[in-house]
């Protein structure tokens, strides 16, 4: 299974602070990404807003609680709720994270890294199969940002992701900021990471800001996309070509215009990087 690279353009995360503007009109974004669990409730304002937005622009559902790497069985309650919201919204793509976050029925509500071992690989691949069969569609998994590694890991994160997508058919949501953050925290070369990711498996990019905590970078999503992440985005465009992008902003969320401006900047950079190559191809 290859990943269908949809021509979505450049979007932003749908956040409560901007609901009123989305209800009042159609903000200038190509598409939006919604955090799946925030829209699983059958009623109330959030799902009404999402249905209104869905009628106007493509929506991608992006989960945070699937816990694809947990050894716990995936709860039926979660799968049923995921299936229901996917059926209701008919999203362009469905994504979650390469992580774990539930243990013996308890959720820690965090995206914890996995040891990159053969055991983890077989486990996650079989769970991706389970979810994809249940949904009847491809799942995309996002590379996490991480602050700690495991002694038992026998392969790099990019090797793990590349093999996982080969075995399970899942797509990759490549979070450019997470590559930068994890590269800094673990001391690997982010360019090597990009080179290790199969080009035809990447469905979309995430772009976001992070915070410098001295000894480490924190994936905080609390300000604009920093220069280093824009630089890595350029490198990713060179490697992967035209890929939809999504700007995430989750803390200290600014007015909508400011988030949209980040998305327009992603579009401008894409044009700047890819237009010369596309002109050469056309001639």
């Amino acid at each position: 299974m290859t990943t269908s690279r949809l021509d979505l353009g450049h979007g932003i995360g749908l956040r409560t602070r901007h609901f009123a503007q989305f209800m009042a009109g159609r903000p200038p974004v190509d598409w939006v990404e919604a955090v799946t669990e925030n829209f699983m409730a059958p009623g109330g304002r959030p799902i009404s807003v999402l249905e209104k937005v869905r009628a106007e622009v493509p929506v991608v559902l992006h989960g945070v609680s699937l816990a694809i790497g947990s050894v716990d069985p995936i709860p039926e309650r979660y799968l049923a709720a995921l299936q229901a919201v996917v059926k209701r919204i008919e999203p362009a793509l469905v994504s979650d994270h390469l992580c774990w976050g539930a243990h013996r029925g308890q959720y820690v509500h965090d995206l914890l890294p996995l040891p990159y071992t053969e055991e983890s690989l077989a486990h996650v691949a079989s769970r991706v199969h389970e979810v994809q069969e249940r949904l009847g569609r491809q799942l995309l998994l996002e590379n996490p940002s991480s602050y700690v590694a495991y002694r038992d890991s026998s392969m790099t994160e990019w090797e793990f992701l590349a093999e996982l997508t080969r075995r399970s058919g899942c797509g990759i949501l490549l979070d450019v900021n997470n590559v930068h953050v994890s590269a800094h925290n673990h001391g690997f070369d982010p360019q090597e990471y990009l080179r290790g990711i199969p080009v035809d498996r990447v469905g979309y990019f995430h772009l976001a800001g992070h915070s410098d905590k001295g000894k480490y970078l924190l994936d905080s999503h609390d300000h604009s996309v920093p220069a280093a992440v824009w630089e890595l985005y350029r490198a990713a465009l060179h490697r992967f070509g035209r890929v939809p992008s999504l700007v995430e902003w989750d803390e200290a969320i600014p007015p909508l215009d400011e988030v949209v401006a980040e998305s327009r900047r992603a579009a401008a950079i894409e044009t700047e990087v890819l237009a010369p190559a596309e002109r050469r191809l056309a001639s």
């Binding site: 820690v108 509500h109 965090d110 914890l112 602050y147 700690v148 590694a149 495991y150 002694r151 038992d152 890991s153 001391g187 000894k215 480490y216 924190l218």
Partner: peptide, 25 residues
Amino acid sequence: ACFAGTPDHPASERVAIYANMYLWR
């Protein structure tokens, strides 16, 4: 024994980042 760190940022400090965020969240 389980987690890997670096001399300037040992594993115990690294997992503490997650432990602090757990309750905060």
